[in-house]
């Protein structure tokens, strides 16, 4: 479903010169799988996701979503993708119902089909109480529910989540993760980017750890334990970063 091969992206900064935000990154993610993209701030996670979402073009390598190349067939890639960023990206002066209708229409849906899809999502995410309230008046948890519903409007086969629990309270974060697991069961290919270790451990089938744009390790939790000799994901992470700080040493 997602196939990334030797992907690179270089930015030019007038003061720092060339910056390799993503450097020869390769991984795949299958249908019914959640792939965790783990890395510190500035690791290149968001850049990778933006290339996959056709927002940025790669400097080298290839990336495919649902069999479509991000450069050659960007429209088909976008039609196959539900993208959720940490900012929720909701229009504050529109209601959840209006937002779902708008995104449905730009995904080519209309009439009774669109109406029934909106009703189904409103029911599924339990947002009927505030479906006609402007988003600027909703809580963070409510907004995130609407945002996930918005990403699912056209029932895409691939879902990308970029730090979806940032700024959410514990309950809202748990509800978000529950929804993501539910969609994994329905066979969606899910790429989940975060720097929160516990979420990755709970959600992801496989984990790709990236640092300074390069892939440090990839595999299941067991495979990463074997590879690093560490038990906890945090220790695995620090071991791969080469910082020398471990979970045990922190005394946590």
């Amino acid at each position: 479903m997602i196939r990334v091969n030797n992907l690179s992206r270089i930015f030019f900064d007038s003061q720092r010169g060339e910056i390799k935000a993503v450097d020869s990154l390769s991984f795949t993610c299958q249908a019914g799988e959640i792939m965790g993209l783990l890395g510190p701030n500035g690791a290149g996670k968001t850049t990778t996701l933006r290339i996959l979402a056709t927002l940025l073009s790669p400097s080298g390598g290839t990336a495919e979503l649902n069999g479509f190349d991000v450069i050659k067939e960007p429209d088909k890639v976008r039609a196959s993708l539900g993208f959720l960023s940490s900012t929720t990206g909701l229009y504050p002066r529109l209601t959840p119902e209006e937002i779902l209708k708008f995104f449905g229409e730009i995904n080519g849906m209309k009439g009774a089909g669109l109406k029934s899809r909106i009703d189904a999502l409103i029911a599924e995410f339990n947002i009927s109480d505030y479906a006609r309230v402007r988003c600027e008046k909703l809580s963070s948890g409510m907004k995130q529910k609407v945002s996930i519903a918005r990403a699912l409007i056209q029932d895409p086969p691939v879902l990308i989540f970029d730090e979806p629990t940032v700024g959410l309270d514990v309950i809202a974060a748990a509800q978000t993760m529950k929804a993501i697991l539910e969609y994994k069961k329905r066979g969606k290919c899910i790429l989940y980017s975060t720097h929160i270790m516990s979420e990755v451990e709970k959600l992801c089938d496989r984990i790709a750890i990236i640092h300074k744009g390069t892939l440090q390790a990839i595999g299941t939790m067991e495979e990463l334990r074997e590879q690093t000799g560490e038990r906890y994901l945090e220790d695995i992470f620090f071991s791969l970063m080469g910082t020398g700080t471990t979970f045990a040493e922190n005394g946590s």
Partner: peptide, 14 residues
């Protein structure tokens, strides 16, 4: 600033 533009651009719209 509100992050809405990014959401719109990842939709299949010209």
């Amino acid at each position: 600033e509100r992050g809405c533009f990014e959401t719109l651009l990842v939709s299949p719209i010209n």
